[in-house]
Nucleic acid binder design. Structure first.
Length: 666
RNA sequence: GGCGAGAUAGCUCAGUUGGCUAGAGCACACGGUUCAUACCCGUGGUGUCGAGGGUUCGAAUCCCCCUCUCGCUACCA
C-alpha cells in the first residue's frame, strides 16, 4: 500500500456538562469515517478527540451534586469516551483539558502571549454600562452617558485579560482570501468575513475571575483562563506541542492539522480566534476547517422536556452500532441540517441495509450453497451483461475517493451502495435459477456466482470505513478477507475454489415500524419522567442526585446594589389591552399596556415566544419608569419583564393571584 | 436593519460553462421473477422547475423585480 503521508484530523472536544446526544456523537462518527477512509487510502492518520472540562457551569453542577469538579468531569468524560468506543470511533488520542501537560502548556502559552504584548490586562476602568454589557472610554460617552442606550454608566471593578485580535486581522484576511479551501462549506467563509473580519475584530476576553474551575493564570492566580484559549489549544498540546520548543515527534510530524472537524456553531472560534492564536505562536495554520451541519429532530431542536432527545446508545440498542452509523452518515447533507426521526431510521434500515445489502449477501450465499456446495470458482464463461457490472464495481473506488476528498460523506456511502444495487440487478439479468435447470449452463452459472461474490467483496471493502463490523461480517461469511485499497480497481482477485459459509446469517433483519415505535415510546416516557422528576426535585429545593442539562441556570453575577438603587425602579402590574407586530422587525411586538389609569406603549423582543393575539389580556410585570427609547422606529415607554432559560426561551412574569392593573410590585 | 443562501415530482434532494423528450432515492400503482430477509428487477407522473417581466434561435440554468423560507449578524429597555 502506497504511503501517502500524514493526515492529522480532530473533532471538537465535547463539553462535559452532560451526556452527548446524537448530534455530538454524529461528529465523532463522521470523523471516524473520514479517518478510516484516509487510513484505507494509505495515509498515516492521527485522529484526536476528547473532552472540554472547565468552566463555571461544571463547577456549579459539581457543587450541586456534592462532588468536586474533577470527580464530576471524570465521570462525564468517561461516559463520553465509552460512547465513542461503543460507536467504534477509532481515535488515536483522547485528550482531556484537565490533563496535566495540557494545563501546563496553556499556562505557558498565556504567559508567552502576555510577555509579547498580545494579551493585556484591563480593569474596565472606563465607564461600564451594565445593561449593554459593554464598557466605554470617557471620550466615547455622550454627555457622560452610554452612547448606546443613553443611561448612566458606572466605573466597573472587575478586571480581565484581553487578547489583541485586531493586531493579526489583516494577516488572517489575507490567508482566508488566498486559501479558499480553508473554511468549508464556503458559505461560512463569507459569513465570517462579512460579520467579523471586515467590520473590525473586537479584542477577546481570555480570563475570568468569577469562578475558579479553570486553568489558573500562573502569574495572576485570581484569574482562570477562559474557555477558548483553554479549549482550542488542545489541538497542539494533545500531540505534544511545547512552548519552549521541546516538541514530541508526534507533534513535529503532524502539525499543522489537515482537518478540524467541528459543528457549524463554533466556526467563528476555529476560523478567527484559533488561527490568530497560532499566528501569535508563530505556528502554521490548519489546512482546513469544516463546519458540519446538525441532525435535527423533525425540524425542531431536541429538548429533554419534550422527551425527544435521541441518544446514540438508545439508537444502537434498537438497531445496532453499524445501523446507527449508517443512518447518521447517510442522512447528513453537506451544507444544510439533516433530519432524524425514528420512522426515518426504520425506513432506511429496511430499504438500504436489510433489502439492498443484507438480502443481496444472503441470496448470493444461498445460491452458491444450493448450486455448487458453496464453492466459488471462475470458469471464464463470460457474457455481455458482465461488462457493466464489472465497470460499475471497479469504477466505484475513484468515485468514492473523490466524494471523500470533498468531505461529502453521505454521497460517498451512497456510491458504495450503488455497487450492491447493481449486483441485485445482475442477479435478475443472469437468472441463476434458470441456468441451474440445465447442466449445459453449469460453467456459466459458476461464473455468475463468482462475479457476484467478487462484487460483494469489493463493495464490502469500500464499506469498511463506514460500517466496519458489517464489512467484516460479510468477509467472514464469504470466507475471504477485505481487499486493499490499491486493488479495488481490479476485478477477479477472489480466490478460486473458496467455500463460503454453509449457513448465512442475515446481516440486518427487517424491522417493523410499529414494534420499534412502541419501544421508542417507552424510551421517551422514561426520558420525560426523568426530566420531570428532576424539575420537581429542584423546585422542591431538594438536592438532586445526578445533574442534567438545563436543570438550573447560572448567570454572571452583577455588581451589588444598594436598596436606594433598587427603590428607584418602579414596578407595576400592567394589563395588555392591545398588541401588534412591529413591521420590519423579526423579534419585536408592540403592546399597549394599561397601568392604573394610564396606557403606555411598550416594545418587547418576544415575538418568537408569544403571538400578538395571545399577549392581549395578560397581566404582566412592568418596569414603568424606564427612560423611553425608540426601537425599530417605534417608541417604547417601559419594559415587560420575562424569565429566560439557557436556550433563550422567554416567559412573561405574571402575578400569582389576580391583581388589578397598576398594582405596585415591591 | 446588514450580509449571504435557497424556492425543481407526495417526501428528501441532483441538475456542471443556458441546448436533445428535466433526473435520483423514498413512497405509491401495475407487471415480471422466485435464489433470497413478503425480497429483487422492470414500467408508470399532465412536475405551471416560487410569481411576474426581460435577454436569447433556445433558460430550471443569465438579468430585473416581487413573494416566501433559511443561515450568520445587529437590535431585542
Amino acid at each position: 500500500m502506497a504511503n501517502k503521508g500524514k493526515f492529522y484530523m480532530t473533532t471538537a472536544i465535547a463539553y462535559t456538562s452532560g451526556k452527548p446526544h446524537i448530534g455530538n456523537t454524529y461528529e465523532a462518527i463522521l470523523a471516524d469515517a473520514i479517518a478510516r477512509f484516509r487510513r484505507f487510502e494509505g495515509y498515516e492518520v492521527f485522529m484526536q478527540t476528547g473532552t472540554d472540562e472547565h468552566g463555571q457551569k461544571i463547577e456549579l453542577k459539581a457543587n450541586a451534586s456534592g462532588i468536586t469538579p474533577k470527580e464530576f468531569v471524570d465521570g462525564v468524560s468517561g461516559q463520553i469516551k465509552d460512547i465513542w468506543n461503543a460507536m467504534d470511533v477509532s481515535y488515536d488520542k483522547f485528550i482531556r483539558t484537565t490533563d496535566e501537560d495540557h494545563e501546563k502548556q496553556v499556562q505557558k502559552i498565556f504567559k508567552k502571549f502576555y510577555d509579547q504584548g498580545d494579551i493585556y490586562k484591563s480593569e474596565y476602568e472606563g465607564m461600564y454600562c451594565t445593561p449593554c454589557e459593554s464598557f466605554w472610554t470617557e471620550s466615547q460617552l455622550v454627555d457622560g452617558k452610554c452612547p448606546d442606550c443613553g443611561r448612566e454608566c458606572q466605573p466597573a471593578k472587575e478586571e480581565a485579560y484581553f487578547f489583541k485580535m485586531s493586531k493579526y486581522a489583516d494577516r488572517l484576511i489575507e490567508h482566508i482570501n488566498t486559501h479558499p479551501e480553508f473554511i468549508q462549506p464556503v458559505s461560512r467563509k463569507n459569513e465570517m468575513m462579512n460579520n467579523f473580519l471586515l467590520p473590525g475584530l473586537q479584542d477577546l476576553c481570555v480570563s475570568r475571575t468569577s469562578y475558579t474551575w479553570g486553568i489558573p493564570v500562573d502569574f495572576d492566580p485570581k484569574h482562570v483562563i477562559y474557555v477558548w484559549m483553554d479549549a482550542l489549544t488542545n489541538y497542539i498540546t494533545g500531540i505534544g506541542y511545547d512552548v519552549d520548543g521541546n516538541h514530541t515527534d508526534v507533534y513535529k510530524k503532524n502539525w499543522p492539522a489537515d482537518l478540524h472537524l467541528i459543528g457549524k456553531d463554533i466556526i467563528r472560534f476555529h476560523t478567527i480566534y484559533w488561527p490568530i492564536f497560532l499566528m501569535a505562536l508563530d505556528l502554521p495554520l490548519p489546512k482546513q476547517v469544516f463546519g458540519h451541519p446538525w441532525l435535527l429532530q423533525g425540524g425542531d431542536k431536541m429538548s429533554k422536556s419534550k422527551g425527544n432527545v435521541i441518544y446514540a446508545d438508545d439508537m444502537a440498542s434498537l438497531f445496532g452500532v453499524d445501523a446507527t452509523r449508517f443512518f447518521v452518515l447517510h442522512e447528513m447533507p453537506f451544507e444544510n441540517d439533516g433530519v432524524i426521526t425514528w420512522e426515518l431510521v426504520v425506513e432506511r434500515y429496511n430499504t438500504e441495509l436489510a433489502n439492498v445489502l443484507g438480502n443481496l449477501v444472503n441470496r448470493t450465499i444461498s445460491m452458491a450453497n444450493k448450486y455448487h456446495g458453496g464453492v466459488i470458482a471462475s470458469t471464464g464463461v463470460t457474457d455481455e451483461v458482465d461488462a457493466d457490472l464489472k465497470a460499475v464495481v471497479t469504477s466505484a473506488k475513484d468515485k468514492i475517493t473523490k466524494k471523500m476528498e470533498e468531505l461529502r460523506v453521505a454521497d460517498a456511502i451512497s456510491e458504495v451502495f450503488a455497487i450492491f444495487r447493481r449486483s441485485n440487478k445482475y442477479i435478475d439479468e443472469t437468472a441463476p435459477w434458470a441456468l441451474a435447470k440445465d447442466e449445459a449452463n453449469a460453467d456459466r452459472l459458476k461464473e455468475v456466482l463468482y462475479n457476484l461474490t467478487e462484487a460483494i467483496t469489493i463493495g464490502a471493502s469500500l464499506l469498511a470505513p463506514f460500517l466496519p463490523s458489517t464489512a467484516k461480517k460479510i468477509a467472514e461469511q464469504l470466507n475471504t478477507s477485505l481487499r486493499d485499497y490499491d486493488d479495488l480497481d481490479q476485478f477477479g482477485l477472489f480466490a478460486n475454489g473458496t467455500k463460503v459459509t454453509e449457513s448465512p446469517v442475515p446481516l440486518f433483519g427487517r424491522l417493523d415500524t410499529k414494534e420499534i415505535m412502541e419501544k421508542v415510546t417507552v424510551i421517551q416516557e422514561a426520558q420525560k419522567a426523568a426530566y420531570e422528576a428532576e424539575e420537581a426535585a429542584l423546585n422542591g429545593g431538594t438536592k438532586v442526585e445526578e445533574k442534567k442539562d438545563e436543570a438550573v441556570i447560572d448567570i454572571e453575577a452583577k455588581e451589588e446594589i444598594t436598596y436606594d438603587a433598587f427603590a428607584k425602579m418602579q414596578f407595576q402590574v400592567g394589563e395588555i389591552i392591545a398588541c401588534e407586530e412591529v413591521p420590519k422587525s423579526k423579534k419585536l411586538l408592540c403592546s399597549k399596556v394599561k397601568i392604573g389609569s394610564e396606557v403606555k406603549q411598550i416594545v418587547s423582543g418576544i415575538k418568537q415566544h408569544y403571538s400578538a393575539a395571545e399577549m392581549v389580556g395578560k397581566k404582566v410585570m412592568v418596569l414603568v419608569n424606564l427612560k423611553p427609547a425608540t426601537l425599530a422606529g417605534v417608541m417604547s415607554e417601559g419594559m415587560l419583564l420575562c424569565a429566560e432559560d439557557a436556550e433563550g426561551n422567554l416567559a412573561l412574569m405574571t402575578p400569582e393571584k389576580p391583581m388589578p392593573a397598576g398594582a405596585e410590585i415591591c
